[in-house]
């Protein structure tokens, strides 16, 4: 019998990818202040501590506000790009789309410091709003990429049929185009939300005195006493991300099924 080396390697690699996430709940429920093996016993006190923490509550509210606003704005901006890129040919398209996609490869530290310099120079005070400005910038490329697939799979003759039947441009978009790309829109909203919720560097530079979840976590990692609670918080965040991503993936696949193209899988 042949040994399936590649398959074993793939399994080992998955284990490597998931190692940190699998360890997280172990420590979140572990009844010890030091994060190490052997485990001491089961407790939910870290979760209780989390629920009482005022600073954490504030950071969570900030993060939810930022992530929701960024997701909506990035998806709206991404729709313009996707529609323009899939529907029209125009000179300079490659250049302008490439430029909008640039934050995908640009180190985030560069995006952050250049925004910081400009905002300070303009006298804009740092707040949740300035973080949103930055997050929209880095979420838009992801939104555009997801929506590009949805808009690209759209059958143009459906829209033309609607025009021929007397619908206006706007009503055609609302009645025909929008429902067909809706799974892509939902998927883009969820992915942008997840990215923004998790983003650290831009928030670190642009949030001023208002903490977000990642900047709060970063400030707490220095204090060993607070680590077990951070593990509990991490467990909740991971569970939430997995849930959101599963929903996003469900809608992405439904979109693929609805338009009838071949499923290539993946968001990137």
């Amino acid at each position: 019998m042949k040994i399936p080396f590649l398959r074993l390697y793939a399994m080992a690699y998955l284990l490597f990818l998931y190692a940190p996430i699998l360890l997280l709940p172990l420590f979140a429920f572990n009844d010890a202040t030091v994060i190490s093996f052997p485990l001491k016993g089961f407790t939910t006190q870290w979760f209780a501590q989390m629920a009482e923490n005022e600073a954490l509550r504030k950071a969570t509210l900030n993060s939810l506000l930022i992530a929701t606003s960024s997701a909506v704005m990035a998806t709206a901006l991404g729709m313009f790009v996707a529609r323009a890129a899939t529907r029209f040919r125009f000179p300079g398209k490659g250049g302008v789309v490439g430029f909008i996609m640039l934050p995908l490869v640009l180190p985030e530290i560069i995006v952050s410091v250049s925004l910081l310099v400009v905002l300070l120079q303009l006298g804009v005070s740092l707040s949740a709003f300035t973080v949103i400005l930055g997050h929209v910038l880095i979420c838009t490329p992801y939104a555009a990429a997801i929506l590009n697939t949805s808009f690209g799979a759209l059958d143009r003759s459906l829209e033309e049929a609607a025009y021929d039947l007397g619908e206006t441009k706007f009503s055609t978009f609302r009645l025909i185009t929008l429902p067909l790309v809706m799974p892509g829109i939902i998927s883009s909203l969820l992915i942008s939300f997840t990215i923004s919720l998790d983003e650290f560097i831009i928030a670190f530079f642009l949030a001023g005195a208002e903490p977000t979840l990642p900047t709060y976590i970063f400030s707490q990692l220095r204090f060993p006493k607070g680590i077990p609670m951070i593990m509990a918080l991490g467990t909740v965040l991971v569970a939430m991300s997995v849930l959101l991503l599963t929903i996003a993936e469900y809608f992405r696949r439904r979109g693929v099924a609805r338009t009838g193209i071949k499923d290539t899988g993946g968001f990137l």
């Binding site: 992915i191 998790d198 650290f200 990642p214 976590i217 991490g234 965040l237 991300s241 997995v242």
Partner: peptide
Amino acid sequence: PFWTSYLI
């Protein structure tokens, strides 16, 4: 795993 909290 890529989409779950980077810091953590």
